[in-house]
Design a protein around this nucleic acid. Structure first.
Lengths: 217, 217
DNA sequence: ATATGTGAATTGATTCACAGCG
DNA sequence: CGCTGTGAATCAATTCACATAT
């Protein structure tokens, strides 16, 4: 199959959320227009995105909400359980450990890791904190698929490699660094400092637009 | 000027981080190759991204680390202070309130808001928690530029509109919803549940690739 | 000699228009 | 007749090649 655009994957996740909300509101049918309006994209885009994976609608009638929701879950791999571990139990790791929505769609937080002897052996948000040195063993025992990487930036690359060696092929990276992905490992980054800087750029750009003499020089 | 690609803005932030790290290591000069390798893009891409904003290098010699770092800060609007407020002092808002790196590059957390009477009047991570009903007044008194939106998803759209009315034109949204941006407001989203689902998609896609009969049916 | 800066070529994604099906 | 599904057209972003400056 031709490679799916990364932007399409992001939009499928948005469509899925919209469908879930529609189903919860008791709506049974929808159309590419509706999804487009809610997702802030064009109806062409919605249909093209779906067309990469198959035909899910009925011409003239649109889509069945519940059935398209299931299809998107299947496409996104959300119709099976994923076991996750938190790597780094600082403030962010601890906040994730008891974030309620994380168990949506079968993501199960199983264990946590840290290097700090004061944390190892404690339980945070229901998760036992293990020694990083036992990563490989504990990952195997718990069949961990995904690592949530919340270590300080200096430790992020080494932790990534340890995860890869332990057989964890999916990483959600929260630290503000560009990681080298080991062979076969997929890394997604959630970088709020970068988001903040993007906001800065656009605010700044808007101001220059309304204040043109500042551009000169 | 032609519109800068959004991907370029993201990459400029990456280049800036690399330059800061190089400067801290005492490196004085660099080249588009170096930046490209570190940022995981092509050297063409680095030069094209920079060319949108001017000429910053010396032919044959490359770039001066400190001076290109300053230029990127200026381009991204990071050479001036930005005042930020946290909207919603749940777990995530509280974690942000005492996240140390947030004051990098002149982002200053000034105040927080919540609707819960038990939280209003308290101080979390050095931030006084105000009543959401006083948003407009407190935003003005503190010259808030950016709102970090950490309210539950049901409250996110209303909070966005309150912020816009109060004159806050930059929002970093942490809640897993697609917000309608009011006129003149720039919204960036940091959505870790979406990141997790992207990881799911790619792990799942890799498995189907190595297990082709699963595709049929 | 070397690495930038940039117009031209290419690739890829989005938009469009309409054929196809219910 | 309405709305999906899709090849063709358009638009945008990336890649390339090389002229240019030091």
């Amino acid at each position: 199959m031709t490679q799916i655009p990364s932007a399409t994957v992001t939009r499928l996740i948005a469509y899925l959320r919209i469908l879930t909300a529609l189903r919860e509101q008791g709506v049974e049918r929808t159309a590419s227009d509706d999804l487009a309006r809610e997702a802030h994209v064009s109806a062409f885009q919605v249909r093209k995105d779906l067309a990469y994976f198959g035909r899910f609608g009925t011409r003239g009638a649109g889509y069945l909400v519940a059935s398209l929701e299931r299809e998107l879950q299947r496409i996104l791999g959300l119709n099976r359980p994923w076991n996750a571990a938190i790597i780094g139990m600082g403030r962010l790791g601890s906040a994730l450990a008891d974030y309620p929505n994380i168990s949506d769609y079968g993501f199960a937080l199983k264990v946590a890791f840290d290097t700090d002897p004061k944390k190892i052996g404690t339980t945070v948000g229901g998760l036992e904190v293990h020694d990083m040195r036992n990563l490989a063993r504990v990952v195997k025992a718990n069949a961990i698929d995904i690592g949530l990487l919340t270590v300080p930036r200096e430790a992020a690359q080494a932790a990534t490699e340890s995860l890869a060696e332990a057989g964890v092929y999916g990483i959600l990276n929260f630290s503000p660094v560009i990681l080298d992905a080991p062979e076969g490992v997929h890394i997604e980054s959630v970088d709020f400092l970068a988001g903040l800087k993007r906001v800065s750029y656009y605010l700044h750009a808007d101001q220059e637009e309304s204040d043109p003499q500042a551009v000169a020089g």
